[in-house]
């Protein structure tokens, strides 16, 4: 259990390095979030929190993907209806993940 928590922390720390608002912003909040739950000992509760952590990892991944995709689309593709539709499809797909 302890190793899983550490792994999640490391994972999130790594992802925070390229966070749009700056790695410092992210890492401070990351530390606070883990610190807040340091006294929890109930395994079921810890498991629940780990699952939430994994969900946050997925969310950040989706955020990075969308951010990059939108930047490329804005730079290299003209805005027309067809394009908008494609973008929407793509974004829905990413959000589902």
């Amino acid at each position: 259990m302890r190793s899983r928590v550490i792994e999640l922390y490391k994972n999130l720390y790594h992802m925070g390095k390229e966070y749009p608002k700056g790695s410092q912003w992210f890492h401070e909040r990351l530390k606070i979030a883990f610190w807040k739950n340091k006294d929890i000992t109930d395994p079921a509760k810890i498991d629940e929190l780990l699952k939430r952590g994994d969900f946050v990892v997925k969310e950040i991944e989706a955020l990075y993907k969308l951010r990059k995709y939108r930047a490329m689309k804005q730079r290299y593709y003209e805005n027309d209806e067809e394009n908008e539709k494609e973008t929407k499809n793509f974004e829905d797909k990413v959000q589902k993940v």
């Binding site: 992802m15 990075y64 993907k65 689309k73 593709y77 993940v97």
Partner: peptide, 9 residues
């Protein structure tokens, strides 16, 4: 091209 797939992280 851009919409071929979604690259993994």
């Amino acid at each position: 091209d851009l919409r071929l797939n979604e690259p993994r992280y």
